[in-house]
């Protein structure tokens, strides 16, 4: 929170007590954009119904500044992948993500978007959107209730507030050389090629490859 290396947290607190609020440009910037997340307006399956419910009067996502659902990726900075991503739909989802301007974030909402959920063994369902695009927040549930989505948004806001604008560990959007577009898989022959993006996802080790797994999963 320190504005300058010479200003310590104690100084800031002392100033706060006197009614003087000190902040850094970075915190102000992050505070502003964390409270105006504009989600891309699209739903893939039943989770989208919960997403809609989260924006309605009872749950009212507008309290967190995330109610302005945009019909175009050009104006959106949050992608809520709400529902089952079929293999046929996955290229569209990745392309939409690519068309969003930086800074952009992804919430993977529900069991299907995380892992394929109940359709995991199906022939036409992608087992997790994190195989192709980087996901910031995973919300478990089938489907997650609107409260869970709100919690996900709050978690994302906390992440945004902690992001750095400069330095070696700066956020991706502040890094000119960091990747902003991810390869779009091709759909054909009933499957995706490649099946996942090896740069951001790798298959977990098979069951029984370590002692821990054996004790837990061996029948």
């Amino acid at each position: 929170m320190a504005v300058d290396p010479h200003v310590t947290e104690v100084d800031v607190k002392a100033l706060n007590r006197e009614g003087v609020h000190v902040t850094s440009l970075e915190s102000l910037y992050n505070w502003g954009r964390s409270n105006s997340l504009w989600p891309l307006q699209f739903g893939l399956a039943c989770c989208a119904i919960e997403m809609i419910a989260a924006t309605m009067a009872r749950h009212d996502m507008a309290r967190f500044g995330a109610e302005v659902f945009r019909p175009s990726p050009r104006q959106a900075d949050l992608m809520i992948v709400a529902g089952t991503v079929t293999k046929k739909m996955a290229p569209m989802v990745v392309r939409l993500y690519n068309q969003m301007p930086e800074p952009k974030y992804v919430i993977s909402m529900g069991a299907c978007a995380i892992s394929g959920g109940p359709f995991r063994d199906g022939y036409n369902v992608l087992n997790g959107i994190d195989r192709f695009i980087p996901v910031d927040v995973f919300i478990p549930g089938c489907p997650p209730r609107p409260e869970a989505l709100l919690d996900g948004v709050i978690q994302l806001q906390e992440k945004i507030r902690s992001q750095k604008l400069s330095g070696p560990d700066r956020a991706r959007h502040a890094d000119k050389s960091a990747c902003a577009e991810y390869p779009v898989p091709e759909y054909g022959g009933g499957d995706l090629s490649p099946p996942y993006n090896p740069e951001i996802w790798s298959p977990p080790p098979p069951f029984g490859s370590s002692d821990e797994d054996e004790s837990e999963f061996e029948t």
Binding site: R74, R95, Q99, D175, V184
Partner: peptide
């Protein structure tokens, strides 16, 4: 200074609901 533009082929292409 802080958020450099990152134009790209996909990003610059027309928005057609994710379809080429």
């Amino acid at each position: 200074t802080f958020t450099p533009a990152k134009p790209g082929h996909e990003k610059q292409s027309s928005y057609e609901c994710g379809v080429v």
